[in-house]
Computed example of a mutant assay.
Amino acid sequence: MLRLLSAIGLGAAAGGLIGWIATGDPRYSMFWGIALTIGLLAGTASVFTTSRRAVAAATDPTGELALARVERIRRTGMTINDQPQCVLVLTVAPRHRAAYTTVHREIVDLVALPRLQPGCVVVVRRPVESKANVVLVMDPPDDWERLREAERLRAGADRTIPLAATAQAWPSEPETLLGVPKATSNPLHAVVFALVLVIAAAATLVPAYGTIGRSITAIAAGDPAAAGVVEGDRHDEIVDALVREVGGPQFTSVGFYDGYALATAPSTPGALTIDDYQYRYDRTEHQGPELIQPDDPAAELFDVTAVDFTQVRELIAAAQHESGIADPESVIVRFQRAGVADESGSRPVQAMVLLDSAYEDASVTFDATTGAVVSRS
């Protein structure tokens, strides 16, 4: 279960990181950090749980006990709770097979180090008969303690443990951090882990699929800016989403920017108090009261469903032609009623296109209905 949770956490973290890079959405930024923490904690817990189970299996009384002599010992530099991990070269003398030499790693209690110096005789347990791996038994049963002491006093041909030079080398299987044999890995487990990780990443990215798809399409078409809001082709879709958030089509302004759109509209349908609304990261948000309330809100309102927002890209191109700014660094298009009435006495809806480049900027205002240029500056 912990391994599965780790796969879900790491997959969600990978998806969150990709989503953050692709969209810039701060929710992904926060999410992937939390998911990564959960994945790492679960993975670490899984490793130690597996190690504890392996230790329990390795110290099972049914494992064969044997005498062994320490030939060499060195520290690896790793410590756990100030206890060093050591590498020991041992000559092991099992009762029912030929003696052999092997290399063993284990976390050793500092108090036990004097009993593990070269030449010392120790008792070990062989968890698996078919493997060379051993586990140190620093507190053996009384009969084995007597055998260990007797072996320590023997010399020459009387030794139970032969000289290392005469024993066959038998490498130990890979060991865990705690010095016990690693459990045999099941390839199916790795496949399931990878599959769960990929599914978690894919599920995390579901809200960003639209943004990522638009970015890929725009880059492939050689027009990365088309993936944004103002220079994209989703203006009607964005306005429709804002209408649903506002609860009606009456707005006082709609503005399109590089990565988002802003609108001002009644706090509730029919109200004469104006609030701010935002479209960003493919979702809308009601941001609260507009900082500067209009003197006559009713006169500022217009029906956004009567405006053709598909002309935004054409208006941008026309503004570039009128201003001579062919490659602006920033583009903003804002729709609102004209500040003064025209000859008919009405205040038509206008589209103001703001262009900004490294050396100059320009503002071109169009009639939102006819597309005619009203003013430029």
Rank of each mutant, 00 (worst) to 15 (best):
V243H: 01
E290T: 02
V254D: 10
S215Y: 00
P249M: 03
D282A: 14
D276K: 06
G288P: 06
T217N: 07
I238Q: 09
E237D: 15
L272C: 10
R214M: 03
P266W: 00
I219W: 06
A261P: 05
I212L: 14
D223H: 13
V307C: 07
V246S: 03
A220L: 13
S215W: 00
A261R: 03
G222C: 03
T264C: 11
T217G: 09
T268S: 15
A226G: 06
G248P: 07
A306S: 14
L272W: 13
D240I: 06
L301M: 08
T211G: 12
V239W: 00
G228D: 10
H235W: 15
S215E: 10
Y260Q: 05
V304T: 15
I292H: 05
A220I: 13
A265D: 01
T264Y: 03
P224C: 14
E245M: 13
G259T: 11
G270D: 02
V243C: 09
D236M: 14
Y257Q: 08
A221I: 02
A299T: 08
E237M: 15
Y277G: 03
F309P: 04
P249T: 03
D275Y: 06
L291K: 11
G248N: 05
L301R: 01
V239D: 01
I238T: 09
F256T: 04
S215C: 06
G210E: 10
R234C: 00
V230L: 12
I216A: 11
R280Y: 10
G213V: 01
P266K: 04
Y260C: 02
A271M: 07
A265C: 07
E245I: 08
E231S: 15
